[in-house]
């Protein structure tokens, strides 16, 4: 839903280095080191996954890494809590379906 560029208390948004990430194939330019969930929400992506049985859409809920509603597949690894995981240049993010599958990338 957009970034807060000017804020009466927090001041102006700092100029920071931008990096490329991919969400379901779509390229986004986001701030280096920001949380994946914040980067996605800033770019109007608010559906992060679909549940196993009812395929219900889910997004963020607690925002601080406790509830796991925000999990997505990140660089092939599923169930990554996007609200507390920072972005990296070239990161590949996919909407997760159910509990996800383990990718080919080794840890």
């Amino acid at each position: 839903m957009g970034r807060i560029i000017e804020h009466s208390i927090l001041g102006s948004l700092e100029e920071k280095k931008m990096v490329k990430i991919y969400i379901d194939g779509r390229e986004l330019l986001v701030y280096e080191g920001e949380m994946i969930a914040a980067a996605l929400i800033a770019n109007d992506v608010n559906i992060f996954r679909y549940t196993k049985h009812k395929h219900s859409p889910r997004g963020i809920y607690c925002g601080i890494g406790r509830c796991t509603d925000c999990v997505m597949v990140v660089d092939g690894i599923p169930n990554v809590r996007t609200c507390i995981t920072p972005v990296k240049d070239g990161m590949i993010i996919e909407r997760q379906h159910g509990v996800g599958k383990w990718g080919e990338k080794d840890d």
């Binding site: 957009g2 807060i4 929400i41 608010n46 559906i47």
Partner: peptide, 20 residues
């Protein structure tokens, strides 16, 4: 999506500077 705790909204706006 769109239903969240008040704290999550607060974290998004004040820490991440993003409007949920």
């Amino acid at each position: 999506p769109g239903v969240m705790s008040a704290g999550a909204a607060q974290t998004m706006i004040n820490v991440h500077r993003v409007l949920p």
